[in-house]
Write a protein that binds this DNA or RNA. Sequence first.
DNA 1: CCGGGTTGTGTGACCGGTCACATTCATGCG
DNA 2: CGCATGAATGTGACCGGTCACACAACCCGG
Lengths: 359, 359
Amino acid sequence: MNVTGHTTRPASIRDVADAAGVSYQTVSRVINGHPSVRPATRDRVLTAIKELGFRRNATAHALASGRSRIVTVLTANTTHYGYASILQGIEEAARAASYAVGIGVLESAGEAAVKAEVQRASDAGGGLIVIAYDRAGVRALAAVPAGLPVVGVVETPASPPGGESPWVWADDRAAAHEATRHLLSLGHDTVHYVAIPSSTRRTSARTAGWRQALREAGAAEPRPLQGTWGPAGGYAAGRRLARDPAATAILCGNDDLALGVMRALHEAGRAIPDEVSVAGFDDSPLAAYLTPSLTTVRLDFTGLGRAAFGLLHGVLEESATVAPHPVSAPELVARESSGPRRHPPRHTPRQHPGAVPPT
Amino acid sequence: MNVTGHTTRPASIRDVADAAGVSYQTVSRVINGHPSVRPATRDRVLTAIKELGFRRNATAHALASGRSRIVTVLTANTTHYGYASILQGIEEAARAASYAVGIGVLESAGEAAVKAEVQRASDAGGGLIVIAYDRAGVRALAAVPAGLPVVGVVETPASPPGGESPWVWADDRAAAHEATRHLLSLGHDTVHYVAIPSSTRRTSARTAGWRQALREAGAAEPRPLQGTWGPAGGYAAGRRLARDPAATAILCGNDDLALGVMRALHEAGRAIPDEVSVAGFDDSPLAAYLTPSLTTVRLDFTGLGRAAFGLLHGVLEESATVAPHPVSAPELVARESSGPRRHPPRHTPRQHPGAVPPT
DNA sequence: CCGGGTTGTGTGACCGGTCACATTCATGCG
DNA sequence: CGCATGAATGTGACCGGTCACACAACCCGG
């Protein structure tokens, strides 16, 4: 109960041992659930533990045992919805398994900076989860020294460069495929794509799924526009697309981009969805409340995070034959921003008066 | 350079000592920058360190020294922009100071759950930063055992319950005051307020600032509407406010709420800003790209995070007389969603056909 | 040329746990 | 009854660092 308010050194197992009249090793056995401790002894020890308010020193435990029950997450700026949600999922699962969660932000994608960050993360001991949706993440994954337990959260199931490490992914390709088919099925000749920054030199999974759907439909394949992670990139892309009367359907790599695109279209006087349909990606909590509400593909980010932790947990403790970690399949959520093609793209785009780029 | 790819036990200071032909203590001196080591010796040691790829074992260091260079952040779900940004700021500052960042999510506000989470966090050693913008956070701050270094990020500078611990805050009161005055200055009779969940039983800082501005202007003081953190709460509040023809200006506790309010107003056929002005709080990255773009108050969340870490750093290492941690003052960003009062509230609100609550 | 203060370096104990092994005692079986 | 067996508990070393202190070599002044 620790009634005394004094800031005294916390009780150690030897303190508990003295109080219970046993050896420190017996205390160790009790707190680790070792079977061969007589019930009466165990009770005495437990009582002493409670009385002294003993908590096992995590640092000493880690040092002596070599296992640290820590998972460090390497991620980009978590103000982006997807990253934050994955982190959320990891944290949930980690908490349930009594793991501590560390976080390292990959601020620049520079080789050296990434390497340093991986080093720092590995200092914590325990395992690593790298969110490799962007170039920095992919670099980090590649920079993880062999022997360090790591799980990647990747965009595409292809083998990450230079690694045998396990990974999890949401089926971005299928998701993009589905979204594109949705737009095509509304009668659009083709679908333009505004991409998030790709994680690799190669085509991203989202881009691939979009392209595949176009091919299957025999539709033209416009060049994808390169976006950023935030709405600003979407806005820039949207301004260009607004000038193209043939662009009647636009798929965006995430919801933030879609917002920027919609804003640009609006400023250019192009009605959504009557003239142009827009679809996003991720189903952020805001998508449903935009005007028009945003058609998007829901991804199970928290499930992804939980799965990543589950996998890592399995690697760290072979005992924990981790239950299958279900990640829900992507799901199209059709809302107001996508609709049937209506107006043949013939008119001159109106010029909106207040077309000032937002602050 | 560690050319061998073998997963061998990492080098310890004794390994380095052997390689350099000195004692382990000398190695310790070198890595800690102790002055009295002969330059020649230091060089030999440094060479050995480089050759063996030695990195000081953080766990052992923490155990032996009692200082762990870890800061654990206790926060609500970080998918909310403000929380994520604060975390971002903390991480930046922590990285600069070679601190590891741990994170604990306060999922429920239940007394027991919060207490358990605080316990877990304190197990990590090092210091604590509690983001106490909500009830769970405030509870957590109160549950921190005396003697554990902690800094609170709070909504209001009033003393947090039961603590002497230092804290940082953005001046939410001033910010709300400014936003309200902005709306009043546009000619509105009064300003309605949709609140984020309050952190305490008492009136929140934002609510207080809003009320103060109304009083100073001699305006009526409508009852604030209770919202949530996400757009859903704003949507519900917006539906109620849309029925009130006298509600021509609405201030929201955050941008997500504002989005929900705007959606509801839109569905009710009330034009923004011509019939109703809306202002948010936080200036999330999306605010500028909404249609209409959202008038809001920018808060320096990352600065707040950096300041919180700075304060904690000062507590943990008295040497680090932390430089003043500047947190930018809140700044009103006027955009399209707020405008002069135009239509006398006389007409019957139109009923929008597609008024289906979003998914 | 000796004593005292500095500088550079080494030794042993310790942080709070875990691990491998030793010991004691009760039990089962030939 | 003797001895192997296993359960219950204790002892010492160890994880990889730090800390307090001892000690040697050097410098300086008297």
